[in-house]
Each structure stands twice: as C-alpha cells, then as structure tokens.
C-alpha cells in the first residue's frame, strides 16, 4: 500500500509540472487557436537558462530564478514578434508547422550551448524528507506542488477578474469583435506567449531541481498533449486536472505493471493510451468546449 501511496505522491508532483506546462499550452490555444508544439522546448530553455545562471555564473538561486522569468518574458515576446506576427492572416496550420520548426531550433540551440549530457542543479532545498500521512516526501516535491497550485490560483483570478484577462478570453472568442472594442489583438497574442514561456520555465526549473536536465527535456511537451486533451484544449481547470491525472495515472500504471507483470517502461506509453481512449469517447475532453476544433 505504501508503495502505491508513494507512486501517487510522485505522480501528483510530476503531474503538477505537466499542469503548469499545460497551462501555457492552453493559454496560447485559447487566445490564438495555435497548438504550440514548442511548449516542451520552452520548458527546456527555461531550465537551461536557470542552470547557466546558477551553476555556470554562480548566482544565488533566487536571483537566477527571477532572471530566468525575465528572460522567458523576452523569449515569449521575441517568438511572437519575429516568428508569429508575420504569419498573421495565414492559415492556422502554417503557424502550427512553424512551432514544430521552432521546437527543433530551440532544442538545437540548447545542444549547441550546453551539449547533450545530463546537468544537475545544486540542491536548493534540504533533502531531508518530510513525512506526510506516513509517506516520506522530499521538500522540493512539496515546493513544486505548492508553486503549481499557486500559479493556477493566480491565473484563474487573472482570467476571471482582471480586465486584461477578460479581454484575452474575449479575443479568443471573437478577434474582430475584440478589435472593434479597442483591444489590441497583437498585444494579447504577445502576452499569451509571454505567460506560456514563463510558466513553462518555472516547470523546467522545478523539473531540473528534481531530476537534472538534458536535451531530452523537451519531450515533456509531448506528455502534455494527453493532459490537455484529457482536460479539454481550451480549459484552464482542465489543464490543471488533466496534468495531475496523467501524472498519477502513468506512475501508478507503471508501478502496477512492474510489480505484477514485471514489465518495465510502461510509464512512457501510459499517457498515450489515455490519449487514444479520450479521443475515442470524449474528444473535447473533460471541460473543453464541445464545438472546438480538435487537432
């Protein structure tokens, strides 16, 4: 039993990171209807920048954490300005293909600067586990979970109550009508890419602190697809729950397969099994809008 509890806790932590990355994904999709295939690479870039600042330049972690966030904002702005704005008015599929290209470019840049071997962050939090309900949990896991929850709360409030947040939702629904109200659609797009880059970076930094980082970190972006499709492509709540469910499910399923059938490696496919099932029975996800376009 304790074995499974431990798996569930691990799943929740990994899942909360999926949720964060899914959050960025959903924000971009909601505002611009673009499916961003470079989301995972944005996670990786954030993690490497923070690594470079902390380890290679020797800055205190908190400083480099904040600087990474600033860098992410700039990265989001650059991506929007240089790559996406020239494509306004082009078919959405062209933009999606460009994000595929962007993912390769970002990955190559990271390999160019930092190579392909695994890099390890210096421990930020004490490694002494904290006991919760009889299960030992590393403090970094708790920090990851709390931070994700906090970010979700912040963004939920932002979208529900702030004028800019409401304007972003309006733009997602009807760009021309939003424009007729003086909402600068280009600014909204830029903002959504910034937010996506920032939450991805935070996800990357947390992940780097848990597992270390390498150039394969970008594959996380693919894991996020099952999460957002499960939750619904255009739902923030869906992103949060979808991420958690996928995280728990893949850990528990993996543990179960190993224990009962001694089959290793089920973790890698569990999420996609869920993806296929979801697409068959409820293609708009748990909380998604029914008529939305599916990818």
């Amino acid at each position: 039993m304790e074995y499974y509890l431990q798996l569930i806790v691990n799943g929740l932590v990994v899942g909360s990171i999926y949720s964060l990355v899914a959050l960025g994904f959903v924000i971009i999709y909601k505002a611009t209807k673009v499916v961003n295939f470079a989301q995972g690479e944005m996670v990786m870039v954030g993690a490497y920048i923070c690594f470079a600042l902390t380890v290679q330049m020797g800055l205190p972690f908190l400083v480099s954490f904040l600087m990474t966030l600033i860098f992410s904002v700039v990265l989001g702005l650059c991506i929007e300005r240089v790559i996406l704005r020239p494509l306004i008015g082009e078919p959405i599929i062209s933009v999606i293909m460009v994000t595929v290209g962007l993912s390769t470019v970002l990955k190559s840049l990271v390999q160019l600067f930092w190579g392909t071997q695994i890099r390890v962050f210096p421990p930020v939090l004490p490694s002494e586990p904290i006991w919760v309900a009889g299960v030992p949990i590393a403090p970094i896991y708790i920090a990851a979970f709390v931070l994700s929850g906090l970010l979700f709360a912040v963004f939920s409030i932002f979208f529900k109550y702030s004028r800019t947040g409401i304007a972003m939702r309006a733009t997602a629904m009807d760009q021309q009508a939003a424009q007729s109200m003086g909402i600068g659609v280009k600014n909204i797009f830029a903002l959504s890419w910034c937010i996506a880059a920032v939450v991805s970076s935070i996800g990357g930094i947390i992940l780097g602190n848990i597992n270390g980082i390498n150039a394969q970190l970008g594959h996380l972006g693919l894991k996020v697809f099952p999460a957002v499709i499960l939750g619904g492509l255009d739902s923030l709540l869906g992103a949060a729950l979808g991420g958690l469910i996928i995280g728990v499910l893949e850990n528990v399923a993996d543990g179960f397969m190993q224990q009962v059938f001694s089959l290793p490696g089920f973790k890698e496919v569990a999420a996609y099994v869920v993806l296929v099932i979801i697409l068959m029975i409820r293609p708009y996800g748990l909380f998604g809008t029914r008529e939305i376009e599916r990818v």
Binding site: I166, R169, A170, M173, D174, Q176, A177
Partner: peptide, 17 residues
C-alpha cells in the same frame, strides 16, 4: 457579436477596455 462565453458584465467590461 457578443462574447457568448462571457457574462453580461464581462462583456460590458470589454466594451470599456
């Protein structure tokens, strides 16, 4: 062209953007 998934007050806030 109202924003269908926003409530009345949110629509009005967009108008006053």
């Amino acid at each position: 062209r109202v924003f269908e998934d926003l409530n009345v007050e949110e629509n009005l806030r967009c108008g006053g953007f």
